[in-house]
């Protein structure tokens, strides 16, 4: 029994450190970039510029319709044959951001469309420009509606960062594989890494409650 406890304690820090170095930054950076991409895609889809709308739809269609694992392999292993070589970490960032952007563009588009037409008209009647109306009136309200679905996507992303192991990023899951391979304690190590993922996703998603509170200050409870 002591053997297992010691192994558990000894491998805890390497796993935790890999989480801090890879899972957390991969999640935060990809989510931030992905959200910006999602907003841009949503706005493009709501515009009336046909070629741009088609491009946005094509992007969402391809990314949602293919496995993230395959996308990561194309970016990291495939692109070099076209002369584009990207490091493992940036390749992971690109893959995750594209994925977050595609899924959440639909969330943001739906949120924007859920804001009543009267809000546009009231702002219009004050003489505000389209950009002003979006920024000052529509997006702040759409943001509130988007928080719960965006949080879902955020937590998924924390766990999806484990896929980066497959493109040589020595993140948490790859560390777990290494430890398991050298100790043959698969059950223990994989349960342990699951716990560490659970820890990080719990901490990171605790922010959701705060964000929701902030947006609900003007809503009847």
């Amino acid at each position: 029994m002591d053997k297992y406890i010691n192994l558990f304690i000894d491998s805890l820090w390497p796993l935790f450190k890999a989480g801090l170095l890879f899972a957390v930054p991969l999640t935060l950076i990809s989510f931030a970039l992905g959200l910006a991409l999602a907003l841009l895609t949503a706005l493009v889809r709501l515009s009336n510029i046909k070629p741009l709308v088609w491009m946005a739809r094509f992007y969402v269609w391809v990314i949602r319709g293919t496995p993230l694992l395959v996308q990561l392999f194309i970016i990291f292993y495939g692109l070099p044959s076209l002369g584009i070589t990207i490091g493992a970490f940036p390749a992971a960032i690109i893959g995750f951001s594209l994925s977050v952007g595609a899924y959440n563009s639909e969330v943001i588009r739906a949120a924007i469309q859920s804001i009543p037409q009267g809000q546009w008209e009231a702002a219009d009647s004050l003489g505000m420009t389209r950009a002003q109306i979006l920024r000052r009136i529509i997006l702040p309200q759409a943001a509130r509606v988007s928080v719960p679905p965006l949080s879902n996507s955020f937590i998924s992303l924390v766990k999806d960062t484990s896929l980066a192991a497959t493109i040589t990023v020595t993140e948490m899951f790859q560390r777990a594989q290494q430890i398991a391979a050298s100790t043959y304690e698969h059950m223990l190590i994989y349960c342990e890494v699951a716990l560490v993922y659970l820890f990080f996703s719990t901490i990171l998603s605790a922010a959701q409650v705060r964000v929701e509170k902030y947006f609900e200050r003007y809503v009847v409870r």
Binding site: G118, Q119, E121, A122, S125
Partner: peptide
Amino acid sequence: TGMVFQSHHLFPHM
């Protein structure tokens, strides 16, 4: 012109 709407259309977040 200034417009007053039937269902006011105030901005709820302000």
